[in-house]
Amino acid sequence: MAGLRVPSVLVTGANRGIGLGLVQHFLGMPAPPQWVFAACRSPTGQRAQELQRLASKHRNVVVIPLDVTDPASIKAAAAQVGEHLGGSGLTLLINNAGMVILNALEDETLEAMTRVYTTNTIGPLLMGQAFLPLLKKAAQGSPGSAMSCSRAAIINMSSDGGSISSPAGWDLMHVPSYRCSKAALNMLTKCQSLRYKEDGVLCAALHPGWVQTDMGSSAGHTPPVTVDESVRGMLKVLSSLSEKDTGTFLDWEGKVVPC
């Protein structure tokens, strides 16, 4: 993480699991971000108590109400972040919010597919659109700098379950709506990388591993990777990303995941 210097970062789904772990690790950096925007749907809810505790201890943490399935909520969040940043841009957007519905293929429904796809794929699309002006401003604030997560970047939290050529974990969970949404997210990441390259914004998809979170444990199995291990690994990966990596799909150890 020595090469990662992030003046500002926004993490969605920041009230628990990987999102909360990311916030904690950003705060624990030798040179923490000036602004850590921690976004979640219910900032005052029971599941956000630890996040609120962090915000009370760290003046650079701003808890943002955000529902990534609601365009109005996204627009309001972008405006709030912009106000805090003043004339500066947003360095790093991590689209971490996600959901899974444990349906087998024969039980999949229109409602479930739509809910999961809206959260896992359309949400990151809308977030990228809404926060692009702030990301561009961050990139423009570092003229001459190479593309990196320390300049301006969008990181989409994907899954190896979205790999078409290597459908990991099929025997444990079918979850076709989740798999399809992550496969689509990988393509969205590629599209963002091609379009936003001209703006100096690096875009990549990350597989965090099978992590010990509520979502990771939802099928009744204990995942092998802790939140701490996953986040440490991903931040190391982020510190190494450069222009050659934009549009790629990597795991928490920096290995390329087949699409």
Results as ranks from 00 to 15, higher is better:
Val68Trp: 01
Asp70Ile: 13
Gly123Asn: 05
Gly86Lys: 10
Glu83Gly: 14
Ala55Asp: 05
Leu20Ala: 11
Pro32Asn: 01
Glu106Cys: 09
Ile101Gln: 07
Gly89Leu: 04
Pro43Val: 07
Asn103Leu: 14
Gln52Thr: 14
Met29Ser: 08
Gly28His: 09
Ala38Pro: 10
His84Asn: 02
Pro32Val: 01
Gly86Asp: 06
Gly82Val: 06
Leu54Tyr: 08
Leu93Met: 05
Asn120Glu: 05
Pro124His: 04
Gln80Arg: 15
Gly45Cys: 04
Pro32Trp: 03
Ser42Thr: 14
Gly45Trp: 04
Ala31Tyr: 12
Ala104Trp: 08
Ile122Arg: 07
His25Thr: 14
Asn103Cys: 14
Val68Leu: 02
Phe37Cys: 02
Lys57Trp: 04
Leu105Phe: 09
Val68Lys: 05
Ala77Gly: 00
Thr109Trp: 01
Thr114Trp: 12
Leu66Thr: 01
Gln49Pro: 03
Ile64Ala: 00
Pro30Ala: 15
Met127Ala: 08
Ala112Ile: 09
Leu93Pro: 07
Trp35Gly: 14
Ala79Arg: 12
Leu20His: 07
Pro43Leu: 10
Ala78Met: 10
Gln46Ala: 13
Ala39Met: 00
Ala112Tyr: 05
Ala104Pro: 02
Met29Gln: 12
Pro33Met: 05
Leu92Arg: 06
Asn60Pro: 03
Ala38Arg: 09
Val61Pro: 03
Ala55Ile: 12
Gly21Arg: 15
Ser88Ala: 15
Asn60Gly: 04
Ala31Met: 13
Gly86Met: 06
Leu92Met: 05
Arg53Cys: 10
Val36Phe: 14
Val63Gly: 01
Asn103Met: 11
Leu66Ser: 03
Gln46Glu: 13
Met29Glu: 06
Leu92Phe: 03
Trp35Ala: 15
Ile64Cys: 02
Ala31Leu: 15
Phe37Lys: 00
Asn96Trp: 03
Gly21His: 10
Glu83Phe: 14
Glu50Thr: 12
Tyr117Val: 13
Thr119His: 02
His84Met: 07
Leu126Cys: 02
Asn95Tyr: 00
